[in-house]
Write a protein that binds this DNA or RNA. Structure first.
Lengths: 223, 223
DNA sequence: ACATAAGCGGACCGCACGGTCCGGTTATGT
DNA sequence: ACATAACCGGACCGTGCGGTCCGCTTATGT
């Protein structure tokens, strides 16, 4: 040990990175329920190696999810410097939805029982704070009503994300449509612009289910 | 067998009812993840009896959930006869949320992978149809914008229900608040009335998690 | 009262999960 | 080149799940 800071072997460091990468990829595409065995296999290491780097699966999840939330919060703070407060707010809202749309694990972590985890809850708080600041600026600019809070918005976004994860692949316009509704709701008196896309239909549900099923069976066949 | 229609023994019928009742109760309070063992135990029968009445757990779930959805749809059709179309629509919306708030199993069945089940999806379709009719009437009355569909509304409700299931016990006003938002969204120009209740806070999340945790550990201690 | 079939229940099975452990391997400093 | 400790990987464990099976019980018609 010639250096104080260099106490871990190089291969250990490399394996940790591989584990984080493979877990991130699998959580993204299949959610947080993927088994630790599969994560280790994809990383090209054994299960033992996984558990030496992360004390439990929950801790691995927390490390990844918290990182993603931290990134989102940073983006939010960045948007605080944008010229148009209202545009900045809705840009952020749209990105938050987009991130969850691209990362199923992140989507599942928000609002589920995983908020029980200290690390995740803290990162979640960062996002809320950023959104809160953006809201405050937009309110001062007169664009947003005074009595809504960051969590009010986040809760509505939960519905949007749910819609996105369920239907966006059979009805791509659904996200923009729902985001429009977040702005204008369904009442006539508001100065409403026409909604984007086409209305979702019963067929969409069926297609969503069939696509999901086909994907599952494909995985099963190859595995 | 003196009667054609009487081919099942009385005790069998009684046990089936007990199973349905206990499953309903457990699904309500703890969600669809409760084990079949516990359901049978609460009903005072063995696991074998459960599987003789229902070929699989999924079928048991479908029987119960579809029944609840059917009830909701009936209520919706009933409201079609109400004098004020707009009031009827929002009464229905509120009741749909209320039902999911009182029944965690129902909440989980909507929008999750359980919509893959034919029986559930069909019953879900009934609810959508009822909501669609209510929407049409409200549109004709000029209360609702023309370009929203029943599923648009249902998706927003998903977010409301999520908020309800997570926070209603620490912030009872949250449901009315979110329902207000469904009507008016967050834009200033709308003729907005002040939101009900108080804004949700970060503390609410923490309390929700702590309460959930305490409940879980209580169950664990008594079981 | 009795014969009989329908019904019963809990022991049992296979499975998949998260997590542990230890004999063999390999990076690392001298 | 070598000694050594850090590291590796996969066999292994306990748990809890949905679902099956079979010997015993009991409702039911005569």
């Amino acid at each position: 040990m010639t250096e104080e800071e260099r106490r871990r072997r190089a291969d250990a460091e490399r394996n940790r990175r591989r584990l984080l990468d493979s877990a991130q990829a699998l959580f993204c595409e299949r959610g947080l329920d993927v088994g630790v065995g599969e994560i280790a296999e994809r990383a090209g290491v054994g299960r033992g190696t996984l558990f030496r780097n992360f004390a439990s699966k929950e801790q691995l999840i927390a490390a990844i999810v918290a990182e993603r939330m931290h990134e989102a919060a940073c983006r939010g703070r960045e948007l605080l410097g944008a010229p148009d407060p209202e545009a900045a707010l809705f840009e952020f809202v749209q990105e938050v939805v987009g991130r969850q749309q691209l990362d199923r694990g992140l989507f599942e972590a928000v609002g589920g029982e995983f908020l029980a985890n200290e690390e995740i809850r803290e990162a979640h708080g960062e996002v809320i704070s950023a959104l809160d600041e953006l809201l405050k600026r937009a309110k001062q600019a007169g664009a947003i009503r005074d009595d809504v809070g960051a969590l009010d918005v986040l809760m509505m976004l939960k519905g949007v994300c749910q819609a996105a994860s369920a239907f966006s692949h059979v009805n791509p316009g659904i996200v923009g449509r729902q985001l429009d509704l977040v702005r204008a709701a369904i009442s006539v008196p508001a100065a409403a612009q026409p909604l984007q896309g086409r209305p979702p239909t019963l067929k969409d549900i069926e297609h969503a289910y069939l696509a999901e099923d086909a994907r599952t069976q494909a995985k099963r066949a190859q595995g």
